[in-house]
Design a protein around this nucleic acid. Structure first.
Length: 503
RNA sequence: GGGCCGCUAGCUCAAUUGGCAGAGCAACUGACUCUUAAUCAGUAGGUUACAGGUUCGAUUCCUGUGCGGCUCACCA
């Protein structure tokens, strides 16, 4: 049994009063002739034409404001398309019906109202109500104090702002904050735009297992679960990579997947334990082809959402015109801190060179890890404009092909926007013998670090031994892209139901 | 996981040095036939997150717990 607040008790009493009058506060059937927006537009089209038939409409929506004035009442209702004003007048429907609305309806209730569209003296297109009924009674008041419509824009005066309540009760946040609803419309459009682009390039969208007996394709701690009948532990995937590349072996030349990855790691403004990833794999392509496609894809998405290839993120204008800046990792570090990583082929040598940097680091880390730390600290935050950073150390890239000229470096790029790492791509390793050696090296690296056991995906190696076409692969965090497109500083703002501790 | 900060009415926020816990909106009662943050008059609304401590007296100071925020760490 919930403990009802005084405000809720008042509304429960209203429900009882309705039922006592034989009125069902939660009826089954609804009538609706127009959305609110359609009704307003239909009226505006015939307005001024004396011969036109009046627009008769039955509208539905949630009551968002009420202004009772004795024998007339104004109210605003909101549906999925727009707000519209209702006008109740005793002359038309009788004082009882006006008072019934004033007394038995509350902010947040759903109503169905019929009448004629007209424009008030103060200029607002309004439904002149001839009949109305309750569609759903709200027991709990919406956490919005009051809002008004100014020039068609809803202006809120003190609304739900506490982040904890907003995330825990996202339904209330959405109901009350139109800008939050807009974020998730943009999110949906973003995913659609990615699909449209890749479909247009001849890619096939596929779905691969989320529950996997062996996880791989990224460096991350997995979530573990258990299948009762199979009597087997399964992992929630940390990437799609190894399954998608099996599909290249199977004969699909271009595949992509958009879906959820799960990583049992820390949470931050740009990390969530479950997040949406897009990966694609492209046969007969290398990482430079993938760079070209990445630019074109992001330009398409930004243009679709923003209607131009520019967006503003946290006050910075970000330009998605092609081509983007391309920075070689080695040169980027030389320019930033004067260290040439090719002159330091061992971690010992690199550690020596890093002595004196203000950045803290683990001197026992591998050379690749140190380079990764350096770029995360000195390069990433400065890449506000879309930037490719390319040619990475081999030992942190076990699935990428080495450069022909340099065994310690692989054909890999990451790209950055707004100071955030957005994605990762490489010329994919397709040599099964080399791949097995890399896996074994990696296993040793884990042993030596006394870290957890890292399983080798033998089936993936078998697939590669059947022959895998040369290919370029790509992965990107979709949540982070949506952050850019909606100008949100934290990933939680673009997740409908961000994780919170149980209360 | 560490550090810092926060938690007061349904919502947004006040409360002087430790001295009767307040406002706006929402709610309730009444007035009002073109309002739109409607207006006007009145009423009610609190375990100050929770538990303990110091004190004549705690929203305020101290300790612990819970939840959240920021940040650092972790994160091929």
């Amino acid at each position: 049994m919930p403990e009802y607040s005084n405000l809720e008790k008042v509304r429960l009493e209203k429900i009882e009063a309705l039922q006592a009058q034989g009125i069902n506060p939660y009826p089954r059937r609804v009538e609706r002739t127009h959305t609110n927006l359609e009704a307003i537009q239909a009226f505006e089209e015939i307005e001024g034409d004396d011969n036109a038939e009046p627009i008769l409409a039955t509208l539905v929506g949630r009551v968002r404001s009420m202004r009772p004035m004795g024998k007339i009442t104004f109210a605003h209702i909101e549906d999925g398309t727009s707000r519209v004003q209702l006008f109740f007048r005793a002359n038309d429907i009788g004082i009882k019906q006006v008072k019934f609305f004033d007394n038995k309806f509350d902010l947040g209730d759903f109503i169905q109202a019929s009448g004629k569209m007209f424009r008030t003296r103060t200029g607002e297109v309004t439904l002149w109500v001839s009949s109305y009924r309750m569609l759903s009674k709200a027991v709990t008041p919406l956490p919005a104090a009051k809002d008004e419509v100014v020039d068609g824009e809803v202006v809120q005066h003190a609304t739900l702002a506490d982040p904890e309540t907003r995330y825990r009760q996202r339904y209330a946040d959405l109901a009350v904050n139109a800008d939050v609803r807009e974020v998730f419309r943009v999110r949906s459009k973003t995913i659609r735009a990615l699909q449209d682009f890749l479909d247009g390039q001849g890619f096939l969208e596929v779905e691969t297992p989320i529950l996997q007996p062996i996880y791989g394709g990224a460096a991350a701690q997995p979530f573990v679960t258990h299948h009762n009948q199979l009597e087997q532990d399964l992992y929630l995937r940390i990437s799609f990579e190894l399954y998608l590349k099996r599909l290249l072996v199977g004969g699909f030349e271009r595949v992509y997947e958009i879906g959820r990855d799960f990583r049992n790691e820390g949470v931050s403004f740009k990390h969530n334990p479950e997040f949406t990833q897009i990966e694609f794999y492209m046969a007969y392509a290398d990482y430079e082809d993938v760079m070209d496609l990445t630019e074109a894809m992001l330009a398409h998405v930004v243009e679709t959402i923003m209607c131009e290839r520019v967006l503003t993120y946290q006050g910075e204008k970000i330009n998605f015109e092609i081509p983007w800046k391309r920075v070689e990792l080695r040169q980027g570090l030389i320019d930033a801190i004067g260290i040439d990583i090719t002159e330091h082929p061992t971690s010992e040598s690199l550690v020596e060179a890093m002595d004196g940097l203000e950045m803290e680091f683990n001197p026992n880390a591998s050379r690749g890890k140190l380079i990764d730390d350096l770029l995360g600290h000195y390069l990433e935050p400065n890449f506000i404009q879309p930037t490719f950073l390319y040619d990475y150390p081999r030992d942190i890239s076990p699935l990428a092909k080495t450069k022909p000229s340099d065994e310690k470096t692989v054909e890999r790029f990451e790209f950055f926007i707004g100071g955030m790492e957005m994605g990762n791509a490489f010329t994919e390793l397709n040599d099964p013998i080399d791949q097995e050696e890399r896996f074994l090296e990696m296993g040793r690296a884990y042993d030596s670090a006394d870290d957890e056991y890292h399983p080798i995906d033998e089936d993936y190696l078998r697939a590669m031994r059947y022959g895998m076409p040369p290919n370029g692969g790509f992965g990107m965090g979709v949540d982070r892209l949506v952050m850019l497109l909606t100008d949100k500083r934290t990933i939680r703002e673009v997740l409908l139901f961000p994780p919170l501790r149980e209360r």
